[in-house]
Write a protein that binds this DNA or RNA. Structure first.
Length: 486
RNA sequence: CGGGGUGUAGCGCAGUUGGUAGCGCGCAUGGUUCGGGACCAUGAGGCCGGAAGUUCAAGUCUUCUCACUCCGACCA
């Protein structure tokens, strides 16, 4: 077997078994390793570097929209968790509890935060006295623990890293505006940084966050046609402020409850990157989050002058703001080519004796596998420009894939066929929980989001067939996406 | 939590009717190589997932556990 084929075979063919492909890729590329405790993962340097890039991009956006970072404790008194009825019902089954210190039992058991609404609301109740104290716009980067029954690295682990924004406002309108503003921040980030086109919209009652009045999310389509909820933004109304007694003296002098939001994204987005852009050679990372944007491979380095030139190019590119490394390891070039492709590095720069004779290097793209010669003295402008081209191309490629995998469906047969063939089904829905449950039961697809554009795509409920057309020509019911989900 | 699969060197695997552990890759050292997974030489590396049992003897048989993995149900 040729070496190239042998290499490809080391990763499961993604078209044959996507789940195994995913596991193969994340382990072989050293993104992640399993922790000793069930459901835990070790985020290795390569994945952590991606996370740091994500953090930097998001932090810039959060700060631009007026938010400040803070940090709250990871231990929450159990009594806090139970204050908001829906919230505790949603999270109680999966919270880890601390009951002992050494051999002594604690007077009150502690919750290891699954999310921080309760402990943050406790502080907010102390900090908010007057309308002058509002709004409070705080974000926190933290780890959270949810003892899930089934786990997969990045997608669902017992502990994961995330950011959670928690804001309080004077009025419902202001809080609703905040909820949608942060959803838009997420959408823009997903598309322009992760190169993942997302569907945004409102969640059904069934799918919304425990304790929220409305949940919005961005849904990303993976290459197997399943949906990954990649970020959520919640409008709480006064649910939590009533439970935690967060009141302020209004301009008019009366006491009012605040209106709140929370919004979050997690290391799950790394899973989204992998499953939205990968291929049979492994990862393909968008330049904006790639830990290494360009890898320089010296060829026939023993021939002299090659390593020196490679180092020179590296310095010039670093100067130009490119995250670049030189692979000086004593391995064959073919091995290095394949390894860096597997690791998803957007650009490979080959520096060899033949190139140097002509003062050029050979530049190979990870996104479309094209190769070009570029003059060495033009690299400092050409490489950043090329990275931009790749970033945009990856988004367009993902968008084309997504758009070609959304099917408008009119009835259950069409819906079933669509989701079983790796598509999202866009459909009309009467809005009943019965239909939502029935679709789930029959197809294993769940409702994902109701898009803001509610232009009808039919006149009857996809499930029960109820006529949704009203006499005045408008349509009752909701346009919604159904999909199998992670 | 239900149903399948897998645990033997870092990784991938072999190990016969029970007899005390092997191969490939990788790793280390030295040398030759280098434009798509090079080669030679030498070398290191294992309580066979864990516990109990059967036996003169267990990687192999029995029971129990644990972990990972895939498919469902539940969730970011």
């Amino acid at each position: 077997m040729p070496k190239q084929e042998q290499f490809v075979k080391e990763i499961t063919d993604m078209n044959v078994d996507f789940a195994r492909w995913y596991t193969d890729v994340i382990l072989k590329t050293e993104l992640v390793d399993y922790g000793p405790v069930k459901g835990t993962m070790i985020i290795r340097p390569y994945a952590y570097a991606i996370w740091e890039n994500i953090q930097a991009e998001l932090n810039a956006r959060f700060k631009k929209t007026g938010h400040k970072n803070a940090y709250f404790p990871m231990f929450i008194p159990y009594s806090y968790l139970v204050k908001e009825a829906e919230h505790v019902e949603g999270f109680a089954p999966e919270v880890a509890l601390v009951t002992h210190v050494g051999n002594e039992e604690l007077p009150e058991k502690l919750v290891v935060r699954p999310t921080s609404e309760t402990i943050i609301c406790d502080s907010y109740a102390k900090w908010v006295k007057s309308w002058r104290d509002l709004p409070i716009l705080i974000n926190q980067w933290a780890n959270v623990v949810r003892w899930e029954k089934t786990t997969r690295p990045f997608l669902r682990t017992s502990e994961f890293l995330w950011q959670e924004g928690h804001t309080v406002h004077e009025t419902p309108e202001e809080a609703q505006e905040e909820t949608l503003k942060m959803l838009e921040v997420y959408r823009e980030f997903a598309e322009n940084v992760l190169a993942i086109p997302v569907l945004v919209g409102r969640k059904s009652e069934k799918e919304k966050f425990a304790g929220a009045q409305a949940t919005y999310s961005m849904e990303a389509m993976m290459l197997d046609g399943k949906s990954l909820q990649a970020g959520t933004s919640h409008y709480f109304g006064d649910n939590f402020s009533k439970a935690f007694d967060i009141k302020f003296a209004s301009k008019e002098g009366d006491l009012k409850y605040v209106y709140q939001t929370s919004w979050g994204t997690s290391t799950r987005m790394i899973g989204a990157l992998i499953m939205a852009h990968g291929d049979n050679r492994g990862l393909a990372l968008p330049p904006k989050v790639a830990p290494v944007q360009a890898i320089i491979i010296p060829i026939a380095a023993h021939k002299g002058g090659v390593n020196e030139k490679a180092e020179e190019i590296k310095n010039a590119l670093e100067e130009a703001g490119v995250r670049v490394e030189v692979d000086y390891r004593d391995q064959s070039t073919g091995w290095k080519f394949n390894e860096w492709e597997m690791k998803g590095v957007p650009l490979r720069i080959e520096v060899g004796p033949r190139d140097l004779e002509n003062s050029v290097v050979t530049v190979a793209r990870r996104d479309d596998f094209t190769k070009d010669q570029i003059k060495i003295d033009e690299l400092a402008t050409a490489i950043p420009a090329l990275l931009d081209v790749i970033q945009k191309n990856m988004l367009e490629k993902a968008r084309a894939f997504r758009d070609s995998h959304i099917v408008i469906t009119k009835d259950m047969d069409e819906l079933t066929a669509a989701v079983n063939n790796g598509n999202f089904a866009k459909a009309m829905w009467c809005g009943s929980r019965e239909c939502e449950d029935k679709v789930k039961e029959m197809t294993s697809a769940s409702t994902r989001v109701m898009p803001f554009d509610q232009t009808p795509v039919g006149t009857k409920c996809v499930c029960c067939g109820k006529n949704l057309l009203k006499e005045d020509g408008t349509t009752d019911g909701k346009v919604i996406y159904f999909a199998k989900a992670y």
